[in-house]
């Protein structure tokens, strides 16, 4: 499958993010991180809460840009410009367009409650890409079928289960044809019996060759689907490697301690 092909021939830095970020309170939430994600690969971020996983994803999505450092996507600066010997984030006006290359799925789904599943998926392609409605609708229906919700297009979010809502959120992100998909703990807010349907959709996406960066504690999923696992703690990337490493015990004590707690 594509997955295997990309696994053996990753082409380096498809997504590359490095830098630091400090919150107003003086808390250093990202401390000199440096992360590369090869094209078509799946990277799973693990680590205790407050370790900076969400902040890293929000930095890549340009929702909360880095203080120092930069994001590179597909060989280009993503939301940043050169400034002196470093980089500076673009003004908000220009970030609006810059954000288009990256799709994101949130822990709490964040579907628009006043719009049906289909309308959720169609909104951005119609309003921001200004694509013809008929074409967008056809594509949106296909995306909803792809995540197994072809018969739920006219339901409002409140009429869908958590797992279904999260799959709509995945379809909504895909409708913008992102180069990278970010997932921020996509199954943490779900009842256990709904976790697998969301992971199933994500696995299918991975197999189609999508580049994915996922904050998740689903270690079974990481073992099966991920190309790399990255462990964060205290705003730093402490360890990274292939998933098997994390299971066969060749990891440092902090990672070991964390894994013992969640497995």
């Amino acid at each position: 499958m594509t997955r295997t092909a990309t696994r053996t021939t990753p082409d380096g830095d498809f997504l590359h993010v490095w830098g630091s970020k400090t919150f107003g309170s003086g808390l250093r939430v990202l401390d000199d991180v440096d992360l590369s994600v090869p094209r078509g690969s799946v990277t799973v971020l693990i680590g205790p809460s407050g370790s900076g996983k969400t902040t890293l994803l929000r930095a890549v999505a340009l929702l909360a840009p880095l203080d120092t450092g930069c994001v590179l996507l597909d060989g280009r600066l993503h939301g940043y410009r050169e400034a002196g010997d470093g980089h500076r984030v673009l003004p908000e006006r220009e970030l609006v367009r810059a954000r288009l290359g990256v799709g994101m799925v949130f822990q709490n789904f964040n579907l628009f409650p006043h719009r049906t599943a289909l309308q959720n998926v169609m909104l951005a392609p119609v309003k921001t890409l200004r694509r013809p409605r008929a074409e967008v609708e056809e594509e949106a229906r296909a995306l909803l079928r792809r995540v197994g919700l072809g018969d739920r297009t006219d339901n409002y979010p409140a009429q869908l289960s958590g797992g279904q809502q999260q799959r709509v959120a995945i379809a909504r992100a895909l409708a913008m044809r992102p180069k990278v998909m970010l997932f921020d703990e996509p199954t943490s807010a779900l009842d256990p019996e709904m976790v697998h349907e969301v992971l199933g959709a994500m696995k299918e996406l991975a197999e189609s060759g999508m580049t994915m960066l996922i904050a998740s504690h689903e270690m079974g999923f990481a073992r099966e689907v991920a190309d790399r696992v990255v462990f964060m703690d205290g705003g730093r990337i402490v360890e990274q490697g292939e998933p098997e490493q994390f299971f066969t015990g060749t990891v440092g004590p902090r990672v070991r301690e964390f894994l013992d707690k969640i497995l």
Binding site: R99, L100, A124, K127
Partner: peptide, 14 residues
């Protein structure tokens, strides 16, 4: 909810 504006911004809405 601020998650609503996050979702909108990620989708490229100004």
């Amino acid at each position: 909810d601020s998650g609503q504006t996050d979702a909108a911004r990620v989708l490229g809405l100004g």
